[in-house]
Nucleic acid binder design. Structure first.
Length: 708
DNA sequence: TATTCAATAT
DNA sequence: TATATTGAAT
């Protein structure tokens, strides 16, 4: 297997995977490490199990996979395994003993996989997949679906079932070399709820960046590898025969219904699996359409907010001329991100720019409009556009606007030597920072905001020109407008729009015109440093881009004081869903703020020791989940840049869920009739006022508050 | 090789 | 439908 072939067997997101290798036999340790490194994995080695544990204790999220020799002279294996199992770190055990009972014991003790020594290069081809398994779900599935089958198997064969069951192991064939092997690829797709790719706070960016269609489980196998949909009984028998004939390096799978710890797994080296057929394209197509074929879809990379900000920061540094995939990639310094992905994103970005240019001005509508026009563009953008949601904004590109308090993203250089010199290329957030939640499903859908317009000419930097349109209540659906009708005509005609020179300029070929200097327009100065200069910036960029804490998160939008009265505050970190109220007597910084965790769907331990941050209105609150965190959290307000009074009584209520429902399923929102119209908007707002502002605000404030 | 365009997959 | 991936042309 050539080195390229080796590497290509590891999908992008799994490259550089942190693996901890534990083996008291030095030679074997070094050798195995070298093998793993050939697959791009980052290997840390130790000969002492106790040292391994202390490393894990130091940072339990560091290693995604632990491979250890079954023999541990310095400590007893069960204790070692116990720690790993509790921390849910996948563990693979190795042994040079070839007895079945040894492997069986390893698996029964909780190992996720068993490797026979000497380990061959080929054996490690799919080892990365273990780092992405969700074992709990596996077991659930086994229990539900396989027990009966196994019982039948046992009773009919009168023996313990061996070999593969497709529920347990996916089969991968590689048309390139005609070989095939079974792997555990299926495991990453086994969660019946499709939530198997749960993002944990410690998850790597690459996990986070890969998404799957919820209704179809993705196949995390490289595209040139075709997954066999099923291994039939015959195959299993054949595999078993092969094994009995003394095939080496076979990963056996054993079942023991009584022992829930037991894993059943099988892996076959290529020479043992030549009986797998390679599907013709037609067969593959048939198989793809088969609903039983669970793993037919590939994961798609996710451009999170964080990544997109890096991307835009890189664009800013580079300027248009050097804005090429390779350089952008270099500046972004995101391991395992590929040029092609950057190129693709750039292509999409350019398309967006072009589209804006064609229209001249786009409006980032207020959310109110989208509720008004439930069946219209704003709503459909939210629902149908994967850009906003997949990018992790939790709200749409085109409805993310707001007359907001300016919270500079901490990864953009609004401080330091390059302050103000960067161009904001973020089409979606020209004027505000949407904090990275690091999590999916954290969308807080409500933005009671005014609209924001972006005016743009031909080039990237034109997107800096953000014009705030106060009290601009309607959105104009960009796509809904016929081309040639420029600039956009707003429904209420209340906003004057500069008629930009939006000739069909090729934005890549032009210098920045930078001609718009209206007082209500933000203008960033544009710098287009030469590439060599640019590269000198990388250190700065690096510093700027490296978040002080990887696990920090913030609310996914910022709000004005005015909006604070309308917007529920809710953050989600890991498993925790935290809500709280600013106290009535809230005055200034360093004030204790009680935050109550409203919802902890999973073990709260998963958020312990992780930092959290709420950026809401004028307040910027952060802290760390205490190690004894259970469900109550006391938070300290760390930073109140503006009048603290504005955050008083920041009520955080349950209606966020209602709004979420509205977002997700407007059809269910039928309280006011069926046809959305302006009257309905009014009624909606009335409801919104009552819900959000209660009786404490006067009508005018309410109007302001809801602004629709 | 890097980039871009455009078809295709999700 | 929008976006990500991929083949193919440059």
């Amino acid at each position: 297997m050539g080195s390229d072939e080796l590497i290509s067997s590891v999908p992008n997101f799994a490259r550089g995977l942190d693996i901890l290798l534990v083996d008291h036999e030095t030679a074997s340790l070094t050798y195995l490490a070298s093998l793993l490194e050939q697959y791009t994995f980052k290997v840390t080695t130790t000969e002492v199990a106790a040292v391994a544990l202390s490393m894990i204790h130091e940072d339990e999220h560091r290693f995604r996979l632990v491979i250890a020799n079954m023999k541990m002279p310095d400590m007893d294996r069960p204790s070692f395994l116990d720690v790993l199992l509790k921390k849910k770190i996948p563990i693979i055990l190795m042994s040079s003993e070839k007895r079945l009972s040894v492997a069986e014991r390893a698996l029964s003790e909780g190992a996720w996989y068993f490797l026979e020594k000497p380990v061959l290069l080929e054996d490690l081809k799919y080892i990365w997949q273990h780092a992405y398994r969700k074992r709990k779900d596996l077991r659930k599935e086994f229990q539900k679906e396989n027990i009966e089958r196994e019982v039948n198997l046992i009773s009919s064969k009168g023996q313990s079932p061996q070999g593969i069951e497709m529920k347990e192991a996916g089969c991968v064939t590689s048309p390139a070399n005609g070989n095939a092997s079974c792997d555990i690829g299926q495991q990453v797709t086994m969660d019946p709820k499709g939530k198997n790719w749960e993002i944990e706070p410690e998850a790597s960016m690459f996990e986070e960046n890969y998404v799957r269609e919820p209704q179809h489980e993705a196949n995390f196998v490289e595209e040139n590898q075709v997954r066999e949909p099923q291994c039939n009984c015959k195959d299993r028998m054949k595999i078993s025969e092969d094994h009995q004939q003394g095939g080496t390096n076979m990963l056996r799978s054993y079942s023991n219904i009584e022992d829930k710890q037991q894993e059943r797994r099988a892996k076959f080296s290529s020479e043992q699996t030549s009986f797998f057929t390679i599907k013709t394209p037609e067969e593959q197509e048939t198989q793809r359409k088969d609903s039983n074929y669970r793993s037919s879809k590939k994961a798609r990379f996710l451009w999170t907010t964080e990544l997109h900000l890096k991307f835009t920061a890189a664009l800013s540094l580079l300027g248009d001329k050097q804005a090429r995939p390779k350089t952008i990639l270099k500046l972004m310094k995101v391991p395992n991100l590929t040029i092609r992905q950057v190129a693709s994103h750039l292509q999409k970005y350019k398309t967006q720019v072009q589209r804006i240019n064609e229209v001249g001005t786009i409006n980032l509508p207020s959310v109110s409009k989208s509720y008004y026009d439930r069946t219209g563009m704003a709503q459909s953008l939210e629902k149908q556009s994967s850009f906003p949601s997949q990018l992790g904004y939790g709200s749409s590109y085109f409805r993310s606007g707001g007359n907001t308090t300016q919270f500079a993203p901490n990864i953009l250089p609004n401080q330091g030597p390059y302050a103000g010199n960067l161009v904001n290329h973020d089409l979606r957030n020209p004027n505000q920072y949407f904090g990275y939640t690091g999590l999916s499903g954290n969308s807080n859908p409500y933005h009671a905001t005014n609209g924001v317009q972006i005016q743009s000419n031909a080039e990237f930097q034109m997107l800096n020109q953000v014009r705030e349109a106060n009290n601009f209540p309607y959105d104009v659906s960009m796509n809904g407008n016929e081309k040639g009708k420029q600039p956009l005509e707003f429904e209420d005609g209340s906003v004057q729009v500069s008629n930009l020179d939006s000739q069909n300029l090729s934005y890549m070929n032009l210098d920045a015109p930078s001609t718009y200097n209206s007082e209500d327009m933000f203008q960033f100065s544009n710098v287009t440093p030469e590439l060599n200069q640019t590269l000198d910036f990388t250190q700065e960029l690096d510093a700027l881009l490296s978040s002080p804490n990887q696990n920090q998160f913030s609310m996914d939008y910022t709000v004005t004081a005015k909006e604070l009265e309308c917007v529920p505050g809710q953050i989600t970190s890991g498993d925790a869903n935290i809500q709280g109220n600013f106290p009535e007597d809230f005055t200034n910084e360093s004030q204790q703020l009680e935050v109550t965790v409203g919802h902890v769907p999973q073990a709260s331990s998963s958020v312990q020791n992780h930092s959290w941050q709420i950026t809401s209105g004028d307040a910027d609150i952060q802290g760390i989940f205490p190690t004894d965190f259970t469900n109550e959290l006391e938070a300290t307000v760390g930073h109140v840049p503006q009048a603290s009074s504005s955050v008083q009584n920041y009520s955080q209520t349950e209606y966020s869920d209602l709004l979420k429902v509205l977002e997700e399923d407007p059809e269910e929102f039928n309280a006011f009739g069926s046809e959305p119209d302006l009257g309905e908007v009014d009624r909606y707002c009335e409801w919104l006022r009552n819900t959000m502002c209660g009786n404490t605000t006067g009508p005018e404030q309410l109007d302001e508050c809801c602004n629709s």
